[in-house]
Computed example of a mutant assay.
Amino acid sequence: MKVVVIGGTGLIGSKVVGKLREHGHEAVPAAPNTGVNTLTGEGLSDVLKGASVVVDVSNSPSFEPDAVMEFFRTSTTNLLAAEAEAGVTHHVALSIVGTDRLEKNGYFRAKLAQEELIKGSGIAYSLVHATQFFEFVKGIADSMTEGDTVRVPAAKIQPIYSDDVATAVARTAVGEPLNGVVEIAGPDVFDFKEFIDKGLAPESDPRAVVADPHAQYFGSELEETSLLPGPDAHIGGTSYDEWLAQQQ
């Protein structure tokens, strides 16, 4: 089976390509550095020739609300049009648990717009909703830092290892289209403060981490369960503590 992975040279995409190839599939990474640009349409028709499945794990180069909305609307529109022309029969996209819960978050609004385009395309699809990646802990902390203090929401978080995300995406890509959503998450639920504390500890980071019910997560205040998946989520096999130990 030929599977084209949009964003196939990035953190998740490169792992998805590797896992598909391990199982004998023709996995083709597609990104600007391979000559494929979904924003301009460059290279799309060529790379999609003979493809049965497209996996989109691409991301916007800017998280500014207008820019990220423009990226996902334009790139997804171009991609879906090229897929229809090429006869692609399954579109898989990686998205985020809780996209419909945080309306003030510009990134989540853009991902929701992407999902609506996919649902209305007429191409069979599967949406993989993941929780936050272990690898993003420092970036999340940096976004919440004021001086020497990291102000985090008084909320729960169930983060996941990127390798487990890639496994779930690759498995979904070679399965039957869901025409719906599958959620994936890590095995442990943490208070947001504990998640950040654990992530910063190996670097002896001097910042104090403080739980604040009004602290914002990329522009949104969180309810306790805003970022948590539902009871039917698929659970990854790697714990946060195991991943942290691997980083030493």
Results as ranks from 00 to 15, higher is better:
residue 145 T to P: 02
residue 158 Q to I: 04
residue 215 A to E: 08
residue 239 S to I: 07
residue 132 Q to Y: 14
residue 172 T to D: 07
residue 24 G to L: 10
residue 200 L to R: 08
residue 166 A to F: 11
residue 23 H to V: 12
residue 143 S to V: 06
residue 188 D to P: 09
residue 197 D to T: 12
residue 35 G to P: 07
residue 109 R to D: 10
residue 133 F to V: 13
residue 67 A to Y: 05
residue 195 F to I: 14
residue 26 E to Y: 02
residue 12 I to S: 10
residue 42 E to H: 04
residue 217 Y to L: 12
residue 11 L to H: 00
residue 125 Y to G: 09
residue 242 E to Q: 12
residue 248 Q to Y: 00
residue 205 D to S: 13
residue 41 G to I: 07
residue 117 L to N: 11
residue 17 V to S: 01
residue 69 M to E: 14
residue 30 A to L: 00
residue 41 G to N: 05
residue 213 P to K: 07
residue 36 V to E: 03
residue 37 N to T: 04
residue 103 E to V: 11
residue 164 D to L: 06
residue 94 L to Q: 15
residue 192 F to V: 03
residue 117 L to Y: 13
residue 128 V to A: 04
residue 198 K to E: 14
residue 218 F to M: 14
residue 58 S to N: 06
residue 240 Y to L: 10
residue 138 K to D: 12
residue 160 I to L: 05
residue 182 V to A: 14
residue 1 M to I: 03
residue 115 E to P: 05
residue 72 F to T: 03
residue 221 E to T: 14
residue 79 L to W: 03
residue 21 R to Q: 09
residue 120 G to E: 14
residue 40 T to H: 02
residue 138 K to E: 12
residue 3 V to L: 05
residue 118 I to K: 04
residue 141 A to V: 02
residue 228 L to I: 06
residue 190 F to Q: 15
residue 203 E to D: 15
residue 29 P to M: 09
residue 70 E to G: 02
residue 10 G to T: 04
residue 207 R to S: 09
residue 45 S to I: 04
residue 179 N to F: 08
residue 177 P to M: 02
residue 86 A to E: 11
residue 90 H to D: 09
residue 132 Q to L: 10
residue 181 V to Y: 10
residue 100 D to A: 13
residue 202 P to F: 08
residue 116 E to C: 01
residue 223 E to G: 11
residue 149 T to V: 15
residue 93 A to E: 13
residue 164 D to P: 03
residue 248 Q to L: 09
residue 13 G to C: 06
residue 88 V to P: 03
residue 128 V to H: 04
residue 97 V to L: 01
residue 159 P to L: 11
residue 24 G to E: 10
residue 155 A to P: 00
residue 222 L to T: 03
residue 29 P to F: 10
residue 49 K to G: 11
residue 97 V to I: 01
residue 172 T to S: 06
residue 164 D to E: 09
residue 146 E to R: 12
residue 232 D to S: 15
residue 98 G to N: 07
residue 57 V to D: 07
residue 68 V to E: 13
residue 56 D to N: 14
residue 21 R to E: 08
residue 52 S to G: 13
residue 220 S to E: 08
residue 108 F to A: 11
